[in-house]
């Protein structure tokens, strides 16, 4: 089986680990080998959370620079920061709604211009899917559903050996009951957003 490598970057609290979990559980449904590694960087204290997920036949569970097939960023600045992980054939999916770090608030840095940011990513990869994921999450019923919106887009690209049906199955059986409807709607909205990109 082909190996597919996925990096997810997010800011603590954005639900990166749940997204990784849903994808891994969906892979397990059809016995697709899956290995994941996470670095929390004191997530609860505003740091960056990075997950590497390797699908298919490989022993390694971390991903070297330039070797991710797909990069999903929950926050635009963090997507840009992770650009060293991709190559010219990679696909990048990013939320465009910024969460400026406190270093910007206290004047120790400037948040990058979003148009420029997208231009840079587009120039260095094969495809960029970028949209306001927070707006879609709100449309689905909860701002916290951003993670599942992005999972929807990721599955639409067809890069991973994981089907939409299996992801929805996991959303139904393994995410909190109260959020199942919101999450399913979020998945569909993200899926459509990628289809239109």
């Amino acid at each position: 089986m082909d190996t597919k490598r996925l990096i997810i970057v997010a800011v603590g609290g954005q639900g990166n680990l749940l997204a990784s979990r849903v994808l891994s559980e969906a892979a397990l449904l059809t016995d697709i080998p899956v290995r994941m590694s996470e670095i929390h960087g004191m997530a609860q204290r505003g740091g960056v959370v990075e997950s590497a997920i390797v699908f298919g036949d490989a022993e390694s569970n971390i991903i070297s620079d330039g070797e991710a097939d797909v990069l999903v960023g929950f926050e635009p600045l963090e997507t840009l920061r992770a650009l060293n992980k991709v190559n010219s054939k990679s696909v990048v999916i990013t939320n465009l709604s910024p969460l400026p770090p406190f270093t910007v608030s206290i004047g120790r840095g400037v948040y990058p211009d979003l148009e420029n940011l997208q231009g840079l990513i587009r120039a260095k990869t094969s495809k960029l899917i970028a949209y306001d994921g927070i707006a879609l999450a709100k449309e689905a019923g909860n701002v916290l559903a951003l993670n599942i919106v992005l999972v929807g887009s990721l599955i639409q690209t067809g890069i991973l050996p994981v089907t939409a049906e299996n992801v929805k199955e996991i959303i139904k059986t393994k995410t909190k009951k109260a959020f199942v409807d919101t999450n399913l709607k979020a998945f569909d909205l993200g899926f459509s957003a990628a289809a239109g990109a």
């Binding site: 960056v48 330039g66 600045l77 400026p100 770090p101 270093t103 840095g109 990869t125």
Partner: peptide, 15 residues
Amino acid sequence: LPDISDVPEMPQRPP
């Protein structure tokens, strides 16, 4: 590896 030399300096996000 992609050439990322033209990426502007990014603000850090320390915990």
